[in-house]
Computed example of a mutant assay.
Amino acid sequence: MPIRKILVVDDSPTERLALDEVLTRHGYKVITAESGEQAVVRSQAEKPDLILMDVVMPGMNGYQATRTISRNDATRNIPIIMCTSKGQETDKIWGMRQGALAYLVKPVDHDELLARIRAMG
């Protein structure tokens, strides 16, 4: 299934804007969420083709949101790429165990991100 609509989840307005701009420029429709709680709600309401998930956020963090989304029958088939500043190997392993299909460390290389998205579509 081609990826057209992407949910960008990050508590940083700067990160959301940067990802929105690069993705929109490459033809993707972008919706955003600024918290893990919003990500869970928007993933169910909007049914995006892909989610880019930050980890460090107030309230529900990205690991918790990824686990919730990937274990919910309505959203379990939405691929999730974690985009986070947490770059330890244990962070990556934990993210993948929560249901992420890929794990990128910030600052995210936009060419690598776009290549991962194309590979999933």
Rank of each mutant, 00 (worst) to 15 (best):
D20L: 09
S85H: 04
A100M: 03
T14I: 15
L104H: 05
M53Q: 12
V41Q: 09
W94E: 15
R118E: 15
S12Q: 11
E21Y: 09
Q64A: 13
E37R: 12
K47M: 09
T90I: 11
V8I: 00
D11Y: 02
G27T: 01
G59D: 07
H26Y: 03
I117L: 07
E112A: 11
Q64C: 05
S85E: 10
A33C: 03
K92V: 09
D11I: 04
Y28Q: 12
I93G: 11
R67W: 12
M60F: 07
R16M: 07
A65W: 06
T66K: 11
T24P: 06
K5T: 15
R67M: 09
R4K: 13
D109S: 02
N61P: 11
L17V: 02
I3A: 03
V55K: 05
A115Y: 04
Q64K: 06
I31C: 07
S12V: 05
W94T: 15
I31V: 13
N61T: 12
K5E: 13
E112C: 07
K86A: 08
T24K: 12
A33W: 02
K86N: 14
L104F: 08
D109C: 04
L104K: 04
D54Y: 00
Q64R: 13
K92L: 07
D49P: 08
K92T: 03
T84G: 08
E89S: 11
M82H: 10
K106D: 08
V108A: 06
I51E: 05
A45S: 14
Q44T: 12
K47C: 12
L114G: 07
A100E: 10
N77P: 02
S35H: 00
T14P: 00
K86C: 14
G95P: 05
H26S: 05
P48R: 00
I6F: 07
M1G: 14
D49I: 04
D54F: 02
Q88T: 15
M120F: 14
T75Q: 08
G27L: 00
D109E: 10
L52K: 01
L52G: 09
P107K: 10
E37W: 12
T66Q: 10
L52N: 09
V105T: 13
V108F: 03
L19Q: 00
S43H: 08
R116Q: 14
G59I: 04
M1Q: 12
D10L: 10
R116I: 13
A102H: 14
H26N: 15
V105Y: 03
S70M: 15
E37N: 12
T90K: 15
W94D: 14
A100T: 10
G62Y: 05
